[in-house]
Each structure stands twice: as structure tokens, then as C-alpha cells.
Write a protein that binds this DNA or RNA. Structure first.
Lengths: 194, 194
DNA sequence: TTCATTTCTTAACCTAGATTAAGAACTTTT
DNA sequence: AAAAGTTCTTAATCTAGGTTAAGAAATGAA
């Protein structure tokens, strides 16, 4: 198991001593998830925060009509989990599924709490991570309230240039909040116009 | 200036010594904002996190057609600010306006950083506050993607029972993402049906 | 109380995006 | 390389919610 990526990532926000690094690393559990396998299913209680080292996952809900809605993609170097379920320790509504063969480093809620006790700097680290995440969700909410489907699609392309060509188009539709049919129509219209 | 409310609120998540309480209190700046006055305007750089002790504010953006979209209401005991602008120290898009005569306790970004240094427990406090906020935004995003306007309205009524009768209906519309005309139609239809 | 402003309602008409359906183009499996 | 499953496209039709407009009701100011 290679922790260099996660340690490099943490070093962007806090500095750790060698022994802190070692302690933190000892809490991580490595897991491989093949494409289409689930890291978490709706109805389960989320017990871990997971850091993606290889591949990409998606976190989505299924509405009462069976339609999927993507809350977030989790490419390399992102943390993923069901924050609601993780905090409340109640069953969540999120599914987390690998879109490609994926590798994650998992930190259990218990170990995360121990980590906060032993190395309080991690309070800061996760505060910063979550602040950034919050800003992104706020912006996405505003975008969903104020932009047209066309505009949201174009914004998605510029925000996630690395993902756009590696995932099925229907997943993009489930993220920006339109049907796959309508996104297809949009693209055809846009191509004609440009 | 009365800090009992904010200290009571903080005590829900971390325990402070008397001198820590005193130090924290010394960083707070009291401000009265009359109804319709702004705490922050689009284009400004957000310099403070503000805790509402009396009244209620709304944080909103204005889209390219001049339509307002409400990101959040900030009733008593909520923190409000433009997180994007506060973190990046760049001009933000949020307007924060008092809906009634309001009182806030303001903590400047500089003082917040000092506070993290001097009393690291506050890293934990704000981490927890932001985690909860994140969960709420995630749920709202999912709701906007999967529920009808009718369902979002009913959910708003149960989520914010204390606010619903104190604010103009057009603000509710701007929060759930419909026009005031359509919300009015929805309510009329719903009343007939029940 | 009157005048002015904002908010709410109703109704006719319009449109962005959904639904349904069916064939075409990819992928994956065998 | 054939079969089977996904995904993508196109097109006709439909509908949730938007737009426009105008009057009614509520709120606020003088």
C-alpha cells in the first residue's frame, strides 16, 4: 500500500512529523474496488471516509421514480463518503460506486476520532477540506437555481475537463440534472451552432 | 453586548475555560443591521464570519436576468458569510441582507486565524459547524434534483416552520427555486385539494 | 387617513425540458 | 466474431413551470 499520494495531499494544508505520518498511515485500510462495485449502498451506515488513490467513483441517490441523481464524482485525490450517515451513524441514502477499477485508503470514523485526539492538526486538515467542499456545493446549488441546462453542461466541461471524456454521457446528465435524451439534444444543437 | 447566546451555542460542541471564553468574546464585534440593510454586497470581499443573535438575514445571488436566488436564510444562532470570498479573499457574488432588524456578532478572518492558533479547540468547533452545513447543502442539492416544486415547498414548511410565516412568500419562492407566481398557484391548488 | 410601495393572486399563453419509443452505435462477454 | 447488453441519438408528443399582465390585498410612510 502506497501512502505517498495521501501524505502529499495532506502536506498541502498541515505539516506532520515523521511519527505523525507513521501513526496516520497505520490507521488507513487499503481497498480495491472493481468497476461497478459499490463502496457503500443506500440504507447502510457509513463507517469510513475514503481517499481515492486510483480511479473514480460516483456518489448518487435514487429517487422515488428510480431515477439516479449524482451528488458528486470522486476522482483521484478526493475524499468520498456519506457525510450525513457518517456523522449521524444512521442509514444513509447515498450509493457510492466505482466507475472504473479503483483503489481507496479508508479511515474509519473511530480512527478518525482517535486521530483528532492524538494529532489535533487533523482537525484543521479536515476543516479545510470540508470548507472547500462546502464552497463547491454552494456554487453548484446556485448554478442549478440560475443557469440553463446548456450553461450547466458547458460549466461542467470546464470544471471537470479530466472526467468528461472518461465517463458515459448519461452520468453527466445525472450530475447536471437533465435526462440523457435532453443532453444528447443539447449537444447536437450546440454542435450545429458552433 | 451579550455573548451568552454564542457561548451557549459553542458549549454544545466544545468546552472552554473562563479565560478562553473571555479571549473569544474579546474578538467579537457587535453590529446592528436594520431590516433591508446589507451586511455584505456582491463584489465585496468578505472579511467576517457573523453569528446571528437577533433577527434573520438572507444570503442571495442575482443572476444575469436580475432574478434573486436565496442560498440560505440565517435565523438566530446561525453563522452567515460568503464562504467562497472569506476563504479566497476575492470578491464574492453573495449579498447578505437583513430581513428584519437584526443583531450579529462578527469575527474577522484575521481574528479567526488567531483564535485557531491560541485556542485550537475552535478548529474542532468550526469543523463541526461546517460539517453540518455541508450535509444540509448536499441534501438540498439532492432535493432540487429529485423533488417537484410542490414537494420542495412542503419540505421547506416542515424544515423551517419558524420562518415560514415571518417572511414574504416571494422569498420562499426564491429559495425553493420557482417564480412567486408559480408558488402562489401551487398553494391555491394544494388548498383546494386538502 | 391617504398615498405609495410592495406583495400576492389569477389567468392566458409560452417554452425548456421530460417522456416515450425505436433504431444506431458502442462495449463487453462468450 | 457473434451475441448481449449498454449507451447514444432522433423525433414526436407532453407537461411542469415560466412569462406577461393586470387587478387585489397587504404593508408602510406621510
Amino acid at each position: 500500500m502506497d501512502q505517498s499520494l495521501i501524505l502529499k495531499n495532506i502536506a498541502k494544508h498541515i505539516s506532520l512529523t515523521a511519527s505523525e505520518k507513521e501513526y496516520f498511515s497505520s490507521l488507513l485500510e487499503f481497498k480495491k474496488i472493481n468497476a461497478r462495485q459499490f463502496l457503500l449502498r443506500s440504507g447502510e451506515i457509513c463507517k469510513h471516509s475514503s481517499f481515492v488513490t486510483v480511479g473514480c467513483l460516483r456518489a448518487f441517490t435514487v429517487d422515488k421514480n428510480g431515477v439516479e441523481h449524482i451528488l458528486s464524482f470522486a476522482p483521484q485525490e478526493w475524499w468520498v463518503g456519506d457525510m450525513y450517515s457518517l456523522l449521524s451513524q444512521k442509514p444513509g441514502n447515498l450509493n457510492v460506486e466505482a466507475m472504473t477499477d479503483t483503489e481507496v485508503l479508508m479511515l474509519s470514523k473511530k480512527d478518525q476520532e482517535k486521530l483528532y485526539e492524538k494529532v489535533p492538526k487533523f482537525e484543521r486538515f479536515f476543516r479545510i477540506i470540508i470548507e472547500k467542499s462546502l464552497v463547491a456545493y454552494q456554487q453548484r446549488l446556485i448554478d442549478n437555481l440560475s443557469l440553463t441546462a446548456q450553461e450547466r453542461y458547458l460549466k461542467f466541461c470546464t470544471t471537470y475537463p479530466a472526467i468528461i471524456n472518461t465517463i458515459p454521457q448519461k452520468q453527466v446528465a445525472a450530475y447536471i440534472g437533465v435526462t440523457p435524451e435532453f443532453l444528447s439534444k443539447l449537444k447536437a444543437k450546440y454542435l450545429k451552432a458552433h
